[in-house]
């Protein structure tokens, strides 16, 4: 197996492995549950992937640097609470406040990590706890008046769900930022080797804080979308979404150690996770076996998609 995967790693079509796996999975589901590949069902899968993708994109910025952001689900939940509370009061400006709150908590995570030199794992776990504490309270429903402002997010534009279009726009923006800007190149450099990046004159601290700020902002955006989809805000709204988001990043082929990856890979990774999960429901996998199958699929997926030629040490 090792020899085989190593040999595959040398071939040029390696970059195509994640998308190929995605297509393969879709075909697999269609074979076992005919009727899966229809326009409506696929659009449904896409819109049900939107929030996961936004969170995974947030996570991509930080993982690329070799860090990790465990606060994303708390930030997304906080954003949903802010939207639900402020929408009836100040209208659509509530979106801005929510996203700003995400930016601030991202900056806070970044500052704790960089200035106090606390590992990102613990720094973000702790800021996540603080943020979750701020969002305490019962679920708040967005009433009729507020739903006037959220309905566009749940609608369609040119035949495609708005959340899908939003995800595509955010995905493209993230892709461009990470590939073509100085910040993006610095991020890859820091992730690939922090001492070398420092020696080459990269402002590591600023790059890191920017990445965490981007992560917080996108997590909040995911929270806004969640709030619109569920017509409410709740401190538990984004629960259990963090690990799938991180898994999406890695399944897409981004290295957890940093320095390799992009938003395109994350999009494919998020879709793979979503197809596996929704596909299990479609195929009718025994409910008791669902977790076992999901776990095995995660391992299999990452074994196919990870690019061993470009990752020296796999930790």
């Amino acid at each position: 197996m090792t020899a085989l995967t190593a040999r595959l790693g040398d071939l040029p079509f390696r970059d195509l492995a994640p998308p190929a796996l995605l297509v393969g999975l879709v075909v697999l589901v269609e074979v076992f549950a005919p009727g899966f590949v229809t326009r409506d069902t696929l659009l449904m899968v896409l819109s049900d992937t939107a929030v996961l993708f936004l969170l995974a994109t947030a996570e991509t910025f930080v993982i690329l640097l070799g860090g990790i952001d465990l606060s994303i689900q708390a930030v997304a939940s906080l954003a949903s609470v802010i939207v639900a509370q402020l929408l009836p009061v100040i209208g659509p400006a509530a979106y801005l406040v929510a996203i700003l709150a995400g930016l601030l908590s991202g900056l806070a995570s970044g500052a704790v990590h960089v200035r106090l030199r606390v590992p990102s794992f613990v720094a973000t776990l702790a800021t996540g706890g603080v943020v979750a504490g701020l969002a305490r309270g019962r679920a708040i429903t967005i009433e009729e008046g507020g739903r006037f402002y959220t309905s566009w997010l749940n609608g369609t534009l040119w035949g495609a769900p708005v959340v899908v279009i939003l995800s595509v726009v955010v995905g493209l923006a993230g892709f461009v930022v990470l590939r073509y800007t100085r910040f993006g190149r610095f991020s890859v450099a820091v992730g690939a080797g922090e001492p070398a990046a420092w020696a080459a004159g990269v402002n590591v601290d600023r790059t890191k804080i920017t990445a965490f700020a981007a992560s917080g902002t996108l997590a909040a955006l995911a929270g806004v979308v969640l709030a619109a989809r569920l017509s409410s805000g709740s401190p538990n709204l984004a629960n259990q979404l963090m690990l799938p988001a991180i898994a999406a990043v890695i399944v897409g082929g981004t290295a957890i150690t940093g320095g390799l990856g992009n938003v395109g890979r994350t999009a494919v990774g998020a879709l793979i996770i979503a197809i596996v999960r929704i596909g299990m429901t479609f195929v009718g996998v025994n409910i008791f076996a669902e977790n076992v199958v999901f776990g095995a699929m995660l391992i299999a997926a990452v074994a196919v998609t990870i690019d061993r030629a470009k990752i020296a040490i796999i930790k």
Partner: peptide, 21 residues
């Protein structure tokens, strides 16, 4: 039987998948 495992998004997505199916 569908289970959400405490994940609202999963719970809703599974129900939508069943509706489509």
């Amino acid at each position: 039987t569908l289970v959400s495992e405490g994940n609202s998004e999963k719970g809703i997505a599974d129900i939508r998948a069943m509706l489509a199916k």
